[in-house]
Design a protein around this nucleic acid. Structure first.
Length: 470
DNA sequence: GAAGCGTTGTC
DNA sequence: ACAACGCTT
């Protein structure tokens, strides 16, 4: 048994509780050196995601400090940084929690090979998901394509019980040097600026736990009934905590069961699992049509309508409210995401990847699997039997899910003598180059809802004949 | 191979 | 009602 230190490489697992790697590391009794690395994979994330990760690192570093440890920050290629740190500290092992998106996986495979080639031990642990993507399979041994069948099968498995958070951590005799988090300037690419997003963000494990308890105590009972109304605070709001691992899905699963269960809510957790299941079986999910027939669909590439969509200036109030909400808060209500995405891909007939890219840059809860699945589901290219005539009508959706207009009023300033503070905040946060003016008239619709629907259906009919051709 | 089913809609 | 097919057991 070695008593040399273990490097614990933290990525999207910024928590102490129910952390399989950390739990095992503490049990080993060896000195532990927590590390976070700003590497090309992290630098490839969108602006809001990079910033939010930094917020998570700051809070997690403080949590480690409270237990007598530290979070060592280094910048560079992960394999080189880890080898360098091993040399500095005498560590002979590097552990981490498994990641599942292709960019991170490719990196991790290479890092593992490099470390082992250098005579070090490299181990990865579960923890980001309830079920490993390959643990759920059909009778034929293949991946699932329908959520309901997937979730039926997955629900028969036991995710196990959450692990306790460790007490004191064993630390090395001396700590390697750490870079300064502020010097990483993780918020530098934010268009709206850090102060705007910080106003809507409460990072960290304690905040995640508080949000989870608050949800189970108050919102859970009416979740199924109210979750679709974007003006209400009726959703769990846990997505960004899951993204950075500030709470584990297993903790959510088990706490929900302890609170009396909530099948609808747990099935939403199931969708996150399903997204990673799909990504595992189709690593190109974020780039390529899941159904390759759609490669011949006559999408428009990026275009002026799409730019108006990004700016929340389409003239369709529910859609604009959604885009503005995301710009200011880094989040967007689930119902609004579907309507906004449907509008871009159907009414504006724009390639789903244009929307995916914008979401990737703006969302603090950005999840590589869930977003790829969601965009393809809306666009029609994803694993779903949604009939082509299922095109969201943005007006009908607003009447149904924002009946008193509270959501639209919160985000649309134009035409109001006394706009909501959030609606005003959007104009302050928007880039000067967009030349937005809250006093100006609200934009005229670029396309009427019925006409946009017809355009989408026409394109679909053309494509159906196109895809028959060799 | 038959049978049953499929997140979120629209008019 | 629409219009309809792939998925899974």
């Amino acid at each position: 048994m070695s008593d040399r230190p273990i490097l614990l490489w933290f990525r999207r697992d910024l928590r102490l509780a129910d952390h399989p790697m950390l739990h095992e590391a503490v049990r080993s009794g060896r000195p532990l050196i927590p590390v976070a690395i700003l590497d090309p994979v992290a630098e490839g994330w969108g602006a809001a995601a990079r910033w939010r990760w930094g917020e998570g690192l700051r809070v997690f570093g403080a949590a480690l400090a409270a237990r007598g440890a530290r979070l060592v920050l280094r910048r560079g290629l992960a394999a080189e940084v880890l080898a360098q740190l091993a040399g500095e500290t005498g560590a002979e092992a590097v552990w981490w929690s498994r990641a599942y998106d292709p960019a991170a996986r490719a990196r991790d495979v290479a890092v593992k090979a490099a470390l082992r080639g250098a005579g070090m031990a490299a181990r990865s642990f579960p923890g980001h998901l309830l079920f490993e993507p390959e643990a759920v399979a059909t009778g034929q041994g293949t991946g699932y394509k329908l959520f309901s069948a997937y979730w039926r099968a997955a629900s028969r498995l036991d995710p196990g019980r959450p692990l306790p958070a460790p007490g004191a951590l064993s630390v090395p005799a001396s700590w390697p040097a750490s870079e300064d988090l502020a010097a990483w300037r993780l918020g530098a690419a934010l268009r709206a600026g850090e102060d705007v997003l910080r106003h809507h963000s409460a990072p960290g494990e304690a905040a995640a736990q508080a949000r989870l308890s608050g949800f189970l105590d108050t919102r859970s009972a009416r979740y199924a009934e109210r979750r679709d109304f974007p003006a209400e605070d009726a959703t769990s709001g846990l997505s960004e905590y899951l993204t950075y691992g500030e709470v584990s899905p297993r903790t959510i699963w088990s706490e929900t069961a302890r609170a009396g269960g909530n099948a609808k809510f747990l099935s939403e957790l199931g969708w996150r699992e399903f997204a990673y299941h799909l990504l595992h079986h189709a690593p190109g999910l974020a780039q390529d049509n899941w159904n390759r027939d759609w490669d011949r669909f006559p999408w428009r590439g990026d275009n002026a309508d799409a730019e108006a969509w990004r700016r929340g200036m389409t003239g369709e109030p529910f859609v604009d409210a959604a885009l503005r909400e995301m710009y200011v808060t880094g989040r967007m209500h689930n119902r609004a995401r579907m309507v906004a995405a449907s509008y871009l891909t159907k009414h504006l007939r724009t390639d789903w990847r244009v929307g995916l890219d914008w979401f990737a840059d703006c969302l603090t809860d950005w999840d590589p699997a869930a977003n790829a699945m969601g965009w393809q589901w809306v666009a029609g290219s994803g694993p779903d039997a949604a009939p082509y005539f299922r095109v969201f009508n943005p007006v009908t959706q607003a009447e149904k899910f924002d009946p008193d207009g509270a959501y639209r009023r919160r985000w649309i300033a134009e035409g109001r003598a006394d706009p909501h503070p959030d609606a005003r905040a959007y104009f302050q946060a928007a880039p000067r180059a967009w030349a937005l003016d809250p006093q100006a008239a609200y934009p005229v619709r670029r396309v009427a809802p019925a006409e946009g629907r017809q355009r989408a259906l026409d394109a679909y009919e053309r494509w159906k004949t196109l895809k028959m051709l060799p």
